[in-house]
Design a protein around this nucleic acid. Structure first.
Lengths: 232, 232, 232, 232
DNA sequence: AATGAATGAGTTTTCATTCAT
DNA sequence: AATGAATGAAAACTCATTCAT
């Protein structure tokens, strides 16, 4: 829910690691950064420490990252990219999904993503300066929102959606924020089916899912009616 | 949506500012902290700079705050307390509010709170270390959620709510997160009536608001029916 | 062994406490200084802390002591004066004392003085900057040495002393240093009779105490030979 | 009289100066510390000043010493080690030394050690916090005392010594303290042959050196007899 | 490319001392 | 005389970054 659905651009890395060796080095640095952040927190996250723990020299660190910030950004990006690996499925599989399926998928993926690397992700959320981080995660959300908007638009007749783009933004943001908050303050809820059900209810309710009533079609609900006639 | 509905306890302040003078000094320091954070960012936020800008000596700063962190916490607390000023109304006025009114109020207050001191709040969200900050804002949310849960419980017959506490948590978190995110990435939405309407729709939908249909009562929607029968 | 045998001069005190109240205040400050030094060490010994612990304001402290150093000096002086209370006896009672008695007294008083306020004295020795302290204690020693020198001179025929002044300096310094060192590193020895005996032996041996051998007097020289006949 | 007869262990140095360069840097820092302490006193002894005066950056200082204290300790240790260079001779050459030779050597070395780096040593004694310093010098003393005790034990028949260990402690402490005190308060004595003679007399007298009296052997002294028979 | 010793500006924090009340 | 809030110079220490090897 917070990963670049596509690929990442040249982050400020000084040099694109072309050789395998370089790639390994960059990986080691990023992973070590994650490890230290996790184990010892933001305070302990110094470039010298990272380099030593990664088994390289500070100089090497600066060969591949112009900045400490760049390294941090790379870490966040990596997380974002791992999130993408999950979201991308949804983005594509959403296409043919029925309304209920789509909603279930959406909710499920939001939860999965939070649970997958909860501790690291939590550490990043809590300890890292958000300056550049936010945009990264937002980009992920935007792409998911775009995919979702498309899907919503395609199912307009079954749903109570006027502005798919705004609705998608609201949905994605809600889910994102809910899982984040829950990760931070009620981590135990993350695994409860009850919580998942509520999230689905939230989405379902918001989308005003219309059930085909075979005999006596219910008149559209107040809210829906109002919504449909309004102009934004 | 993120303020202590009650008052805050003795935070780490070294000395309880009893005299008016002390109070003014503490105020000046906190406001200056806010100002610098706003104008020059986290990097410029050094104790010496704060003190100088506040027109006092560093020593005085440390007379009232044991730590830089304590000062920052005090700032966050102040924001949280200002939020409370708004939330407290809702908490009380919610009691007799009809369902529609309550929802409108809830949404309205969430937006108001974000808009009121948007820039400062944004700065705090983006730049400050969340270590102690999170709990402060969470406390606010919890209290609002409690008030909301009560209200929900009292209107159970009109609503589609099984677990008021969980529902309240979800609602509060959603609204909080939505306004936060929007403040950070789509600040222009914060003032759009469209956005407010959507938030109301989100809440209304989620709560499964039941409309009294005078003639032909619609059979409860699928979702609702399902929900009612499920065991949590 | 380290106290001013006479009285102390105007230490740098800003004002001679004439009133009883002032005297009490000065006392409280000095005693509090000792207490803090003892309980919490040199690091905790700040003027503000001392004043607060003594129940007065810092301003009052500076009313009576121009300096932190002056306060410290006053403490040392007080200790030195307490030592004097003991030494002064020796100084006078030494006059008519026999050689053996004199030696026993000298040694005994050196030990008593170290034992009396061992912890505080130890703290002063270990933690205080010696800048001005040394001279204070030295003055005590000098006076004792003077008294001792006189006594030695008066007993020249029984002793093997050429330069009473130098001998006295050596004796006083030795005893002083021995008790100090022992206090610091072998405090348990301070109470052992064995240690006291050795100190007497040291003095006796050094002074070459001549024993009147009734029958067959050993031939002189040999300071050593003479020494052999002494009884401890 | 105050140096580690052996070598010193890893003190708190952050990094073992393996390269020649590092060694030079550490040396420069320690020597500069000594110089400043000597020239400008304890007050002027700030890490920044030391570093600047040594021609390196503060950072470098902290690369090799975790603490200001560690640097100070290193200085003391260096002095202690230099003392050792002298004492070690005595320790070994004492073995075959006759009683008179041994005593002369002991006294001589005590004086030499004090004279060698009198000003620096004085500064250390007067200005440095003794917290960790004391143990260092004490260790030196203990080792010398051990060597001395052995020598005393080996010459028991010529001397009036019951408990070599205690006697050695007393001797070493006396000499140490006498030279220290004299360095502090009567530095001119340090070079006087008279003073040296007295020290020898002190030791000789205390040890109850027995002279072989060819004709009429004097009966053993009282003290000696008692001492020999008593159990401690 | 890699190293890691060196850098030093910049940060937090302390605490002796003053002075308006 | 007493107070104690205010001062601010100065200290210890950090750590991102560079650059000679």
């Amino acid at each position: 829910m917070r990963a670049t659905l596509g690929s990442s651009r040249q982050n400020g890395a000084r040099k694109q690691p072309s050789q395998a060796r370089s790639k390994a080095l960059v990986d080691a640095l990023i992973q070590t950064t994650a490890r230290i952040l996790l184990r010892d927190g933001w305070q302990a996250l110094t470039t010298n420490r990272i380099a030593r723990a990664a088994g390289v020299s500070v100089g090497s660190l600066y060969q591949y990252f112009p900045d400490k910030e760049a390294l941090l950004l790379a870490l966040v990006e990596r997380i974002a990219d791992e999130m993408t690996a999950h979201l991308i499925e949804v983005g594509t599989s959403l296409h043919d999904a029925s309304v209920d399926e789509g909603i279930a998928k959406l909710v499920r993926v939001a939860l999965d993503v939070s649970r997958r690397d909860a501790p690291l992700y939590r550490a990043v959320l809590v300890e890292l300066p958000r300056q550049g981080t936010l945009e990264l995660f937002d980009r992920v959300n935007r792409r998911l929102a775009d995919a979702l908007a498309e899907w919503l638009a395609a199912r307009r007749d079954e749903l109570d959606v006027v502005d798919p783009s705004l609705t998608a933004h609201i949905l994605v943001t809600s889910l994102d924020a809910l899982t984040d908050h829950t990760l931070l303050f009620r981590p135990e809820l993350l695994d409860s089916p009850r919580f998942e059900r509520e999230l689905r209810a939230l989405v379902t309710g918001y989308l005003g899912v219309r059930r085909p009533s075979p005999v006596q079609p219910c008149p559209p609900r107040e809210r829906s009616r109002r919504r449909r006639t309004r102009t934004t």
